[in-house]
Design a protein around this nucleic acid. Structure first.
Length: 153
DNA sequence: GCCAACGTTGGC
DNA sequence: GCCAACGTTGGC
């Protein structure tokens, strides 16, 4: 069992949007970064837990917990010329981009903001999210960091 | 809206 | 394989 953090812009897809999905599950499509793809395709396991992070908004931070559901599969949006994440270099016979399905678990009692996380720099050393210049949208979370952050809730 | 950080592209 | 140009991310 591993832990992850996944970013989403709430204007695009928020944690409430996930909650309101018919099966509270959403394919995490549109990721076009190789490192993030490799985490989703190769490292995630069915049942892994995920911090749901809101980026590019008033208070960037962790707002809820989700869960990885099922195995990896090709990101279908890469094949659709009308999709904003269309990638002509991704061939359905040899897909370049993969996704996971993410299921709602529960909201945090309160948002744990990026600012607050940065205030715990010592305990959260080497946590990718608080490293300078971090732009990765899918990243692993160490078990001790996961527990520490939930301890702030 | 600004801009630093960083990933990708493509000419050479 | 190098690296300048360019595009994107995302905090502020």
């Amino acid at each position: 069992m591993a832990y992850w953090l996944m970013k989403s812009e709430p204007d695009e897809f928020s944690f409430d949007d996930l909650k309101n999905r018919p099966e509270q599950t959403e394919p995490w499509d549109g990721v076009r970064n190789y490192q993030a793809r490799n985490f989703m395709r190769d490292a995630m396991q069915d049942g892994d837990e995920v911090f749901f992070y809101h980026s590019n908004c008033d208070i960037p931070g962790i707002v809820g917990i989700a869960r990885v559901r099922g195995e990896t599969r090709p990101d279908h949006t890469a094949f659709d010329p009308d999709d904003k994440h269309f990638d002509p270099k991704s061939d359905p016979d040899k897909p370049r981009w993969y996704l996971r399905d993410i299921q709602y678990v529960r909201p945090l009692a309160r948002t744990i903001s990026l600012k607050e996380l940065k205030d715990h720099a010592e305990a959260l050393q080497d946590f990718a999210l608080v490293r300078r210049g971090n732009r990765l949208s899918v990243m692993p979370v160490d078990a001790q960091h996961w527990d520490y952050i939930l301890g702030l809730e």
